[in-house]
Design a protein around this nucleic acid. Structure first.
Length: 495
RNA sequence: GGCCCUAUGGUCAAGCGGUUAAGACACCGCCCUUUCACGGCGGUAACUCGGGUUCGAUUCCCGAUAGGGUCACCA
């Protein structure tokens, strides 16, 4: 039997970084096994729907290179569905759920419940007072089906609940956790169909996974506890349950579940910050899974090749931005320069360094810039910081070491000779720098740090920065000269 | 709180009864670079704690502790 997996998010907002990783693992597993990866939309909670969420989701998944074979896709800016097992949007499958809930009702595995929210709330409070675990008290469990059906058909508000047997161990095998046993006494008579006629997750997921031929359910560990309910439903229908694979959570630095509050949990945030999809995916794959060998940097094809569920870890992992940065910097260094330059432009504009027209006009200059600062970048957003020296007109030697450089005895000598050489230069290219530094060394006797450092400081105000030769080229004659003058004035003012 | 799960350096993690307990990130040092990076080399740093089982436990079992998950007509 061929592998079929699915990623089934609800369109309630942005794509969480943890969901992205779930999608990734589903995708990798499907590809690895020549199977199908399906994207289904679980929009059964009508009150939580967020407009545009599906589009955003499809965009970010596609940006990451996680492409599905079936389900909801975007084509020419329109949402369409492809595949044999549709519809792939749960709100379009209401008729299907209706049919299957009847079967359950008739089998006695489910029952109508007419309890009001108020009553339920009261029961809950009482149980809490008695320090019991809140649970449905079975008030409507024993109505006859005919009677209940009649009431329901007359329009009395009701839900349909799962009728769980008492004190029965439900056992299932989890691919990462092994054998999991949960007693039905610790489970609730879960609502399957809500008052509004929509199914709950628990019902829809079972029906859909079965109907769509899902062989492996790969999802977050928050579903472990409710899996026995799903297993029970499979049994009630006489269906074979898929293999469950529950992934450990991704945590924040406080070992808590990554939440919206700390920011940077939306995959789109990382895109905005200038992480490359390859970097994000590569890093994400490594939180909760490890390869057999010691490889750290992976292309998608390599991930597919190496991925296996056996090597998914059981314990949650902390999301480590440092490591993400390191992984991402690899891809920044290796990216095609033209592509990287294009991606960098929005950050230059956003920083206010250049206008859009300027970036088009001076595209070669931008490429030169990107080519020298890329090695210092772990995300594109850092361009703002790393490129600042080329755009700020005032030199601000705030750093103590930088100030020290400017107090050097030979600073004026260096500035003078440097100024003269630049003034007389015809073109300032990368080679010019090389020759220039050689000449100055010859004429003054300064070399190494005592030569480069002061010059870097009076040109940029910083003691660190990109290669000096390229820095000169990028700065250009005019800027170099005006900066030397600026520093002279600065030194007089700060004497 | 009940139930379920997890536990190796600061972080990700390998290990699956006998190892000098890998590797990566971060940090520190050295080298390379006439500068800055990149890169290379090296260093600091870990089996949560008790009991068992065993000739021998990081590894198996039990308990404690800590952390996570869950307890909705949300997914």
């Amino acid at each position: 039997m061929s592998v079929r997996v699915r990623f089934a998010p609800s369109p309630t907002g942005f794509v969480h970084i943890g969901s992205l990783r779930t999608a990734l693992y589903n995708y990798l597993f499907a590809k690895k096994n020549n199977g199908s990866y399906i994207l289904r939309i679980e929009d059964t909670d009508q009150s939580r729907l967020v407009g545009g969420a599906v589009e955003n989701m499809l965009d970010i998944l596609s940006w990451c290179g996680i492409e599905h074979n079936e389900g909801v896709v975007k084509k020419d800016d329109e949402i369409i569905q492809v595949g044999e097992c549709g519809p792939y949007i749960q709100s379009e499958r209401l008729g299907i759920y209706k049919k299957y809930i009847q079967e359950l009702l008739e089998k006695g595995c489910a029952y109508y419940c007419f309890c009001s929210k108020e009553r339920l709330e009261q029961v809950r409070e009482e149980q809490l007072e008695r320090h019991e675990t809140p649970k449905y008290d079975g008030h409507c469990r024993d109505y006859s089906l005919e009677e209940a059906k009649e009431r329901a058909e007359k329009g009395e508000p009701c839900v349909v609940r799962l009728r769980l047997p008492e004190n029965k161990d439900i056992i299932f095998n989890d691919a990462v956790r092994g054998r999991v046993v949960v007693n039905t006494n610790d489970l609730d008579d879960q609502v399957l169909i809500k008052t509004d006629g929509f199914p709950t997750y628990h019902f829809a997921v079972v029906v859909d996974d079965y109907l769509m031929g899902i062989t492996h359910v790969i999802r977050g560990e928050e579903w472990v506890i409710s899996t026995p309910k799903h297993v029970y439903l499979y049994e009630a229908f006489g269906w074979q349950a898929p293999l469950f694979v529950h992934l450990p959570n991704i945590l924040n630095s406080e070992r808590k579940k990554l939440s919206k509050r700390q920011g940077d949990v939306a995959a789109a945030d990382f895109k905005k910050k200038g992480y490359l999809p390859e970097g994000l995916i590569n890093y994400l794959a490594l939180v909760g899974w490890s390869p057999e060998d010691e490889q750290e940097i992976f292309k998608m094809e390599e991930l597919i090749e190496s991925f296996s569920i056996e090597r998914v870890s059981k314990s949650g992992g902390i999301f480590d931005t440092d490591k993400l940065n390191w992984v991402n910097s690899h891809f920044i260094k290796e990216y095609d320069l033209d592509v990287l330059s294009k991606l960098s432009i929005p950050y230059l504009i956003e920083a206010g360094y250049m206008t859009e027209e300027e970036t088009i006009e001076k595209i070669d200059w931008v490429k030169d810039l990107v080519s020298i600062i890329r090695e210092r970048l772990s995300s594109l957003a850092e361009i703002k910081k790393e490129a600042a020296i080329f755009f700020n007109n005032e030199i601000k030697p705030e750093n103590e070491e930088a100030k020290e450089m400017l107090r050097l005895a030979h600073i004026h000598e260096l500035m003078n000779i440097f100024e003269e050489k630049v003034k007389n230069a015809e073109t300032i290219d990368q080679n010019f720098g090389k020759i220039l530094f050689k000449q100055i060394q010859k004429e003054t006797g300064y070399k190494g740090k005592e030569l480069y450092m002061p010059i870097r400081v009076f040109l940029t105000g910083e003691i660190h920065g990109p290669d000096m030769g390229m820095t000169l080229k990028l700065l250009g004659k005019e800027k170099i000269l005006s900066r030397i003058q600026y520093v002279r004035d600065y030194l007089i003012k700060n004497q």
